[in-house]
Computed example of a mutant assay.
Amino acid sequence: MRLIPDSLIKKEKDDNLMFESSRESRIKDFKFGIKSALPIILGYLPIGTAYGILAVNKGIKPVYAVFMSVFVFAGSSQLVALEMIASNAAILAIVAMTFLVNLRHVLLSASLSLHLKNLPSFWYPILGFFITDEAFAVAMAEFDNVDHKKEYYLALGIFSYLGWVFSSAFGAFLSEFINFKSGGALDFVLPAMFIVLLLIQISGRKDLFVAFTAAVLSLFFAVGIGGSWNIILAAGLAALLGVYMDGGE
């Protein structure tokens, strides 16, 4: 009977220890991703609830409002699309505006890809679906503190996503039991949200000038051509102006 060499036995034990250590490290980073998602979830609760209430208030069935959160998962573009749907905007205009609002995700994806290298190709669309401004900011701040970035970001994205879907569903189905249409406050929720988002983004005179130009152009196109293309045209031209001003410095 031939005995197994002690060196092979030792190597197998070492490999098992390394596998267990790696597994524990991955689980640790996954749990850390869940913990990092908690502040994002708390921030999503009021906005997602407001989105669900607004959707039903605009005449969209609760289940469809939830499906939008399930399949789109982009709060700002969902709110824009919601308002355009309620105003009977053309489908092409809604798609174009959603594309413009989410165009920044191309840059976010490119930046994240530098930290998520050498993954099987099927992981990239999965992780890309969970990209949001909040998840991106948290991940970029914490990537240096984790060994397994994929597991960390996957947990961060999944639980942030579940928080958004849950809050959307809560607001949508809450509207089935409580009549929010009687008050006019909801009509100001969407504009107020975007005003806050705009103010957060403004960091200097140049940003203020571009924002003011976009507002003037939107009003001009709304009066001049009508329809629902004024926002798209104004946003596109204002973005070009911003790029030109950046290039000129």
Score class of each variant (00 low, 15 high):
residue 3 L to Y: 12
residue 147 D to C: 02
residue 89 A to V: 04
residue 71 F to Y: 10
residue 241 L to E: 05
residue 133 D to A: 09
residue 237 L to E: 00
residue 143 F to E: 02
residue 57 N to F: 05
residue 161 Y to V: 03
residue 221 F to R: 13
residue 11 K to E: 14
residue 213 T to F: 15
residue 12 E to R: 15
residue 131 I to D: 00
residue 184 G to D: 15
residue 88 N to G: 06
residue 106 V to A: 10
residue 175 S to Q: 10
residue 230 N to V: 05
residue 109 S to P: 03
residue 15 D to K: 15
residue 204 G to M: 01
residue 87 S to V: 02
residue 174 L to H: 09
residue 221 F to M: 06
residue 190 L to P: 06
residue 104 R to F: 05
residue 19 F to Y: 12
residue 89 A to H: 06
residue 13 K to L: 12
residue 191 P to M: 04
residue 195 I to H: 08
residue 205 R to S: 13
residue 213 T to E: 08
residue 54 L to W: 01
residue 128 G to H: 06
residue 58 K to I: 03
residue 221 F to K: 12
residue 152 Y to G: 00
residue 180 F to C: 01
residue 215 A to S: 15
residue 49 T to W: 09
residue 223 V to F: 14
residue 68 M to T: 07
residue 124 Y to T: 00
residue 170 F to E: 05
residue 119 L to G: 06
residue 90 A to V: 07
residue 198 L to G: 03
residue 36 S to Y: 02
residue 199 L to T: 09
residue 110 A to C: 12
residue 139 A to N: 14
residue 22 S to T: 08
residue 85 I to L: 15
residue 43 G to W: 06
residue 191 P to F: 05
residue 136 F to E: 07
residue 128 G to A: 10
residue 13 K to N: 11
residue 148 H to W: 08
residue 86 A to C: 04
residue 48 G to P: 02
residue 178 I to R: 06
residue 239 A to M: 12
residue 17 L to I: 14
residue 85 I to H: 06
residue 66 V to D: 10
residue 31 K to A: 13
residue 201 Q to M: 09
residue 93 A to G: 11
residue 183 G to R: 13
residue 38 L to S: 08
residue 134 E to F: 01
residue 221 F to C: 07
residue 163 G to N: 01
residue 123 W to Y: 10
residue 199 L to W: 13
residue 104 R to M: 11
residue 106 V to W: 06
